[in-house]
Simulated assay, not measured.
Amino acid sequence: KDVKAACDSFKKIEGVDECIIIQTASRVEIFTVSNVETDDSPDARREEGKSLILNKIKATWEQHSSLEPNDIDHFDQILEVYKGDDVYTHLLRLACGLDSVVVGKQEIFNEIKESLANAKQAGFSGKILNKLFESVIRLATTIRDSTGISKDVVSLGDVAIRLIDEKAGLDAKKKVLLIGTGESAAMVAKTLNNKKIPFDVTSRTIERSTNFSQILGGKPVVFEEVLAGFDKYDIVIVATTADYFLITYDRIKLVMEEKKKGTIILDISDPRAVDEGITALPGIKLLFRDQVAEIYEESVKARSGIVPAVEKIIAKEVPVLSATMKRI
């Protein structure tokens, strides 16, 4: 929720000397310098596990996150822990864009640089993390330039917004609604932000919408209020993973029957979340994921052939980086 406050709390854990946090729409990465135990850590609920640094880090993470109770119960199932050389490999893959939702995307690289700058300014990082991040940034810049993995990268959000702009025109005066808070919705939100287009965001719970908006912008709105005021939107982008129709003829019939201006709805959900029956209502133009998928998949395919070359370079650089870090 507050990266600076979280970094401060991690630094207060006995045995943790440095900390840098990278937070994006789809991940939170916490890098610490500490005397982390080399063996597998016992269950934090057991007495012998509570005092271990790794479990203290987990507990602090939970306190500073917006995780819902069900997510906290399954936290260990989604948490990945890296130590030693695995950290160098992971950070290099991240900086080169291999582990991004959109392979090769420049955004994560920029966020790594920004996280380092913020940690330095606040005094949360030190000579070890500073050296590691500076080395990785330098290497990733060379790898990206030499392989071309960042060239002509487009996200699903880029293609979706381009299609809408072609079909209906897109500017800051249009009332835009984004339904969904997952990876596809995050890509759309980033593109809208880049184009400085304001938007409302909704999900099945207002908590998810609020958490999403804190990182990716948008005004969170209760889903039931969205349905009741559906007629005020000019553009609706649906990007969910729901296994049922969220938008149906019956749900929006009354509010849409008297609408004078048209509404364009793009459903990029998989499976579809908008019932085609709504096209019987006046002024509604419905577009589906198929109309953006082909362009997006061509972009993904073009870069997939570059990935092995990037991985090969990383494999050669990690031992060199490891030797450098051991000399500090």
Rank of each mutant, 00 (worst) to 15 (best):
S299T: 04
I149T: 11
S150R: 07
S209E: 08
I206W: 03
I306T: 10
I143F: 11
T147G: 04
K83H: 08
M256H: 05
K50F: 03
F75E: 03
K260A: 04
N70A: 15
N194I: 01
D152H: 08
A122C: 06
T147D: 02
S269G: 14
D2W: 06
I143L: 08
Y82E: 08
N70P: 00
F199I: 00
P198G: 04
K11Y: 04
H74M: 13
I57D: 02
S203E: 03
I314K: 04
V103M: 12
E14C: 05
T38K: 11
E298P: 01
T241M: 03
G305W: 00
D152G: 05
E224S: 13
G169V: 00
K253A: 11
L129G: 07
F124A: 13
E297C: 11
F230C: 04
S115W: 07
I265F: 03
K56W: 00
Y249I: 04
F288G: 06
C19R: 02
G229I: 00
D8V: 04
K195W: 00
E48P: 01
I161C: 15
I252K: 00
A44M: 10
V201R: 02
K56N: 08
K167T: 08
D234T: 00
D76N: 14
K131T: 15
I197T: 01
N70E: 15
K131R: 12
N130A: 07
V292D: 13
C96E: 06
L227S: 07
Y82R: 15
S41R: 07
E107C: 02
L94G: 04
L254W: 09
T279Q: 13
I164H: 03
D231E: 15
V36S: 12
N118S: 13
R45K: 10
H90D: 05
L192S: 04
H74D: 14
I128L: 12
A160T: 11
K151C: 01
Y249P: 00
D71N: 08
A117Y: 12
D250R: 11
V103T: 15
I284Y: 09
C19E: 03
D290R: 12
T181R: 12
I306C: 00
Y249M: 04
G283N: 08
D234C: 00
P308T: 01
E18Y: 06
T191N: 05
S51P: 01
A172T: 06
K312D: 14
S100C: 02
A59R: 13
K12N: 14
V274H: 07
E294G: 01
K56L: 09
V159P: 02
A273N: 15
R208Q: 11
A119V: 09
E111V: 14
I215C: 05
K56V: 05
S269W: 10
I143V: 15
A6L: 13
T60Q: 05
V81N: 09
I21A: 08
A5Q: 05
P42C: 01
D275G: 05
E207K: 12
D171T: 00
N211M: 08
F223R: 12
L52N: 08
V101I: 14
V36Q: 06
V103D: 02
D8I: 03
A44L: 10
Y233W: 11
I112N: 10
D152V: 02
D8R: 14
A5L: 06
A6V: 09
L178V: 08
A6H: 13
K58Q: 07
S26E: 13
I235V: 14
V274W: 06
R208T: 11
K151T: 10
G97Y: 09
K232T: 10
G180C: 02
I72V: 15
K1Q: 14
V159E: 00
D40A: 11
T210M: 10
